[in-house]
Each structure stands twice: as C-alpha cells, then as structure tokens.
C-alpha cells in the first residue's frame, strides 16, 4: 500500500482470518479503512466480501462455531474490535450497519429511528424527537416521512424502507457505517437515491460498502478493494483500481472476463 498522501486511518485489518467452523472464509487480510471516506469491497459472489464486512460489527458472534484470527484495529482509540475482551455489543454501538434487504422493525417509522437511542437508554421525548428528525433528514427521507411518523414502517416503499434503515443507523451517530449490498433489492431510481445519499454521508461518517455492482463501486467510492476466494487481491484508490489495476485477476474481473 504505497499511497502516502493518505487521510487518517479509521480502522485497519491486520492478518485477519475467519473460519465458519472448519471452513476458512477469509485468508490473511490486511487493509486500511480511511476516515470519512467510502471504501468499496468488490468481487465475485462467495469471495468473502460480506463475511469481511460482518467482521467489523462482530455479526458472526451471533452464530455458534464462528472464529476470528488476527485483528481489526479501530481508531482513534486503537481498540482491537475482534479481541475476546471487547464486548460485541459495544462494537455494534459504534459501528452501524445497513443490510441487503431493507429490514425495518415491525414498529412505527418514528420508533424505528428512535430504536438505537432507546437501546442506549434515551427516553427523553424532546431528545428523541430531535434526533429522529435529524437522522431522517440525514437519510433524505424526512420530507416523505414527516407526516406519517406514526405509521408502520412496512407501509413505506422498498427504497424508502432502505433509507429509513439508513436513518435508523445514523440516529446513533456511528463512527463507521457498513453497507451490505444495500441496493441489490431496489429498483434503479431508488438505487440512485441511495448512492447519492452515500456520497452525502461521507462528510459525517466513514463508510464501508459491499457491492456486486462495479459501476456502483466506481460511482460512490474513494477506495476499492477487490476480493477473490477469501483473499484481498488488490486495494487502492478507486480511480487507480478501475483504470490501471496492478493484478491480472483484478483486471479480469473489472473487464468482465470473470465473475
């Protein structure tokens, strides 16, 4: 990684290995995540990009038999997110996540956004109102939602639901926001709205996004990592990866000869 004019580090994977039971899904990954930038993870399906993403909020801890090796350092406090001494819940309170399919809770729009705050013990109505409005504005859904805050979230359209899920994640001011193929279940117009939003959001928060769509990676990200069979093949500035990839395998994938 010979990029020297780099911004500050937000996180860094160091010799990261991951196992589903016996199966090794991630192989010795080293990669920086830069502060207030968008980093895209691309690669053919099954390459481990989602597995890698879900390591950042310890999602794998929910299922028995999963095991991490190595470190993900989180800055500025230089915590190892994967350490067994670090509480996964504490990690998840600092790292937000948006999923492949919109998964609003069976609650009102308002309560969906307020959820994370309530988890943190905040029940003051005024504070909640304020934060909910701020988060909905941040996720560019305030205008559509402000008159129907008490409606069930499931009444929203798919694209609106996904923006609501982004608002839900934003409401608690996460330091890092993970996106796991956030537009794969959406139509092109809703996809464009989310992409624009991601672009907006990087002013406030560091973003790591998995995408199956190379154009999307090229459009939204500052940095791109290409993964293949659990390995990190190449990482660099998005322009460089797409214009002059160094690795033959990256080039094959980007030019459509593979994947």
């Amino acid at each position: 990684m010979q990029i020297h004019d780099n911004p500050a580090l937000k996180a860094e994977a160091r010799n990261l290995n991951f196992f589903y039971g016996e199966a090794k899904a991630l192989k010795n990954i080293n990669m920086p995540i830069y502060d207030k930038k968008v980093t895209a993870l691309i690669g053919p399906s099954g390459c481990g990009k989602s597995t890698y993403l879900r390591s950042f909020n310890r999602m794998h801890d929910l299922y028995p038999g999963n095991r991490y090796e190595g470190e993900i350092r989180f800055f500025p406090d230089n915590t190892n997110l994967l350490s067994s001494e670090v509480d996964p819940i504490e990690v998840r309170m600092r790292v937000g996540m948006v999923f492949q399919k919109p998964n609003p809770f069976p609650k009102s729009i308002y309560e969906n956004v307020a959820y994370g705050l309530r988890v943190r013990g905040e029940n003051n109505k005024r504070v909640l109102d304020d934060k909910v409005e701020h988060a909905l504005k941040g996720a560019a859904i305030w205008d559509e939602a402000k008159d129907r805050l008490s409606e069930l979230a499931s009444n929203l359209s798919g694209g609106q639901q996904q923006r609501l899920c982004i608002a839900r994640a934003l409401a608690t001011d996460p330091e890092l926001l993970l996106f796991d193929e956030p537009t794969s279940a959406l139509d092109p117009i809703a996809t464009a709205a989310i992409e624009e939003l991601v672009h907006e959001l990087k002013k406030r928060v560091t973003i790591l996004i998995v995408t199956h769509n190379m154009q999307q990676a090229a459009r939204v990200s500052d940095y791109t990592a290409y993964m293949y069979l659990g390995e990190m093949i190449e990482f660099g500035k998005t322009d460089e990866i797409f214009i002059k990839p160094k690795d033959k395998r990256t080039e094959d994938y980007i030019t459509g000869r593979m994947g």
């Binding site: 509480d87 819940i89 309170m93 013990g121």
Partner: peptide, 18 residues
C-alpha cells in the same frame, strides 16, 4: 445531547446483560 461516554455505554450494556 452529548454522545454517551464509553463508561456510560458500558453501564447501559451491563444493565442489558444483567
């Protein structure tokens, strides 16, 4: 509202885990 300090977050988590 100020963001919660690490101690406050840990206290919330400890309560939840209890």
């Amino acid at each position: 509202m100020q963001p919660l300090t690490t101690e406050q977050i840990r206290a919330v988590i400890a309560r939840g885990k209890l």
